[in-house]
Write a protein that binds this DNA or RNA. Structure first.
Lengths: 136, 136
DNA sequence: TCATACTGTAACTATTTTTATTACAGAACA
DNA sequence: TGTTCTGTAATAAAAATAGTTACAGTATGA
């Protein structure tokens, strides 16, 4: 993965867990992360798409967890959040006239998939509840 | 990790393995990768720093593997090549006045380190020889 | 019912990161 | 001694990421 999507998403989920069902608005969350509220809302939209959070519009609105934190594992969060292949979604197009260039994209993809599976497996051994417990 | 350092380095190493000791110059390698020769030379400089390749300057110069491909494992290549933490080296500084913001960087780092260890372990199960054999 | 305070989303700008280009000194070769 | 490389720096271009502004739509409550 890349950039800070995972960090931001996990930060959001941790905050939501800590306040146990209370609604938090994007400005508050952005204040904790120290980033832009719109970025938080975009990240929340994605977390919502994958069923991790619920949001309430309008005055007094905000977001809350849509699941029990013990049922949210970090591997699933990673998968929901990831947008590119792990080790560099090269839009690079190797030379098709070279025997190595011609095949390497496929071989790299296979290698990355395997490595990423190992990564996700490691993340999956922890739930949001576990992670969040470290803050108490 | 990120960007295409690993992809490029592995592409280089694979090419060098395929030609079995022949010297390849940066322009030829760049032609296979379809990128800039200077980028290849920088990547080679790094691979040299970690003892994977040898280079010869001057006319007729180029690079070759400095080790037996069976002794180069992909986890080591990954470690040599990686420059940032895996899941987003956020230069972001969360709010120190928030209980979550204050501690999350450390918790994320620990989590990433563990996940990355799993990733490297997966990559380490393969050598350059194994990888390169897929092209024959 | 109307002012207020949110979400959701788009459009745009700014910043940062990545990649490419140009340039050139120094090395090896013929 | 001209040619062809590496190594490296400086710069420019391109791409990715994050921030900003703006606003329609929704809920709340006075």
């Amino acid at each position: 993965m890349n950039s800070s999507h995972f960090s931001i998403s996990l930060h959001i989920l941790t905050l939501l867990d800590q306040v146990k069902g209370q609604l938090l608005n994007s400005e508050y969350i952005a204040g904790s992360i120290n980033c832009n509220p719109v970025l938080v809302r975009k990240e929340l939209a994605n977390l919502h798409k994958y069923g991790f959070v619920q949001s309430k519009e309008g005055k007094g609105g905000g977001s809350t967890l849509a699941k029990n934190p013990a049922d949210i594992n970090l591997g699933d969060v990673y998968r929901a959040v990831k947008q590119k292949s792990l080790l560099g979604e090269s839009k690079n197009e190797p030379n098709p006239d070279c025997p190595v260039g011609k095949q390497i994209t496929k071989h790299l993809t296979d290698l990355y998939d395997e490595a990423e599976t190992a990564l996700v497996k490691s993340l999956s051994s922890k739930t949001l509840k576990d992670f969040s417990a470290g803050f108490k």
